[in-house]
Design a protein around this nucleic acid. Sequence first.
DNA 1: TTCCAGGGGTAGA
DNA 2: TCTACCCATGGA
Length: 299
Amino acid sequence: MTHTFIVQTPPAFRFWPTVRSHGWCDLGPFSSHVEARTLERVHQLGAGSVVRLILAGDKDEHIAVTVEGLDNGLSPAQKDELTHGLTNAFNLDRDLSDFYALVRQYPRYLWIEQKAAGRMLAAPTVWEDLAKTLLTTNTTWNMTKQMVARLNTLGEPDAPGGHAFPTPERIAAMTPDDLNAHVRAGYRGAYLHELAVRIANGDLDVESWRDPALASADLYKRVKSLKGFGDYAAGSILKLLGHFDRLATDTECRAVYKEINNGVPAQNDAEIAAYYEPFGPWRGLVQWMDVMEGWLKNS
DNA sequence: TTCCAGGGGTAGA
DNA sequence: TCTACCCATGGA
């Protein structure tokens, strides 16, 4: 049985550039389909049922949500739950007008507003963003995809054979050794397990980190206090949570800086930080746009 | 075989 | 605050 509803979006929102703003769209349980311009996701509702979501932008750039896999109707509570999760995932509460006003002043960055880029696709839960970000550290993107795919198979299955992202409770119920025998995350496995345990037993309420009143310096400290989250990972998480005043300088960013700097590599990360400093509270997003420019322009 | 990826923890200064 | 060294995986 299939149900469809619309999630309203803010002005200047565009569905496809937001989907393609981040590699997340190709990490399970998301999958993006370029020809159809749809984003799919196998998703577990709070009550336990697993559904398949097919998302597309409609003519007004609102999000058309098709829900497959519910035997009964889509209840108002389920619709609210999905809308809430998608509001998080698409960062629909975020006002980017100041960001566009800033980049409009730089010829190099005029493409950002023209492409309606800058809104980043996140996961519906902070736990999922943390787990995936941990699996991007010190590895290749291809390896990240494989590790996340294996992690994802631990989640609740749906009828067509997909899996929802595993809950922290599910991961916490495993031993670290069993988890890593399955995910093959190397030294990251123990960190992932510890994170799941702390969330599952209530020691950490990571969903509360979405609170807009939380200062980014405070949030940064909290993320970095997690095992396995250093400057790069914490900077990445802050962006997904809507704080853009932190850089997340990785090998990719260093390569991009070299291009911007006429082929001359930065002597150190401080030189890269100095380049982005004028962008103030938006510097992290400008840095991300530099990394994603080629991909976004071709999406 | 070695090197290293969308780094980070730890010890020691 | 900075540096040296270690860390598992698997592709090149």
